[in-house]
């Protein structure tokens, strides 16, 4: 199979919503909140273009790009974990979930280093409107990564104990859906705050 065919081929014609419906309502609520915050940033910037462009130069774009790669990779590992549990391979599922959490942990460490450097430079939320959004949005997303890791940890523990099977693995899909949402939000947040000018 060549690369183009592999990319375009459907990954399975699943017709029901993966995971628990309650989690999806939670995900929609989270997306709504992040969407409002993103648009608040974008329209606030439109009134302070020079301030936002100048302040953005203080950010470490490479650090943001590495964090994007970490979250994308962790999402891919979660896809692998779901695939393994669909085949009844609990231990392999746990290993992929652990790899995803390691990426999430690296994201958090990098983000803390980034925030620490800003605070050391005397930059706070009160510095200006740009940094209010940068720190506020970044910390809000940071807390979602923490919650996502807690969820993945709980799912991994249950999988380790043999709590999921090929026939019954809704919990794995529920945790995976939340983690992909955290990734999806960062896919918008990174270019918005670090790249676009």
């Amino acid at each position: 199979m060549n690369i183009a065919v592999a990319l375009l081929a459907p990954q399975g014609r699943r017709r029901d919503l993966p995971g628990d419906l309650a989690m999806w309502f939670f995900i929609f609520a989270e997306l709504l909140v992040f969407g409002v915050l993103f648009l608040a940033y974008a329209f606030a910037r439109a009134r302070n273009v020079e301030l936002f462009n100048a302040s953005q130069l203080e950010l470490d774009r490479i650090s943001g790009a590495i964090n994007t790669a970490l979250l994308i990779t962790s999402s891919y590992f979660v896809v692998r974990a779901v695939d393994r549990i669909r085949h009844g391979a609990s231990r392999a599922c746990v290993h992929w979930l652990a790899a995803a959490m390691a990426c999430g942990g690296a994201f958090l460490v990098l983000k803390l280093v980034e925030f620490g450097a800003k605070f050391d430079a005397g930059i706070t939320m009160s510095t200006n409107t740009f940094f209010m959004f940068y720190i506020g949005l970044g910390f809000f997303h940071f807390m979602h990564v923490v919650l996502g890791m807690v969820i993945l940890g709980a799912v991994a523990l249950k999988a380790w104990q043999g709590g999921y099977s090929a026939a019954d693995h809704t919990g794995v899909e529920t945790g995976a859906s939340y983690w992909h949402m955290v990734d999806l939000v960062w896919i918008v947040l990174f270019p918005l705050v670090y790249v676009l000018r």
Binding site: R13, R14, R15, D16, P18, S75, V79, H180
Partner: peptide, 16 residues
């Protein structure tokens, strides 16, 4: 990127 995550990673592409 977002569409890939939504359709393929979240597996929403063919959901009713």
């Amino acid at each position: 990127k977002g569409r890939v995550v939504i359709d393929r990673f979240m597996v929403l592409q063919h959901v009713d």
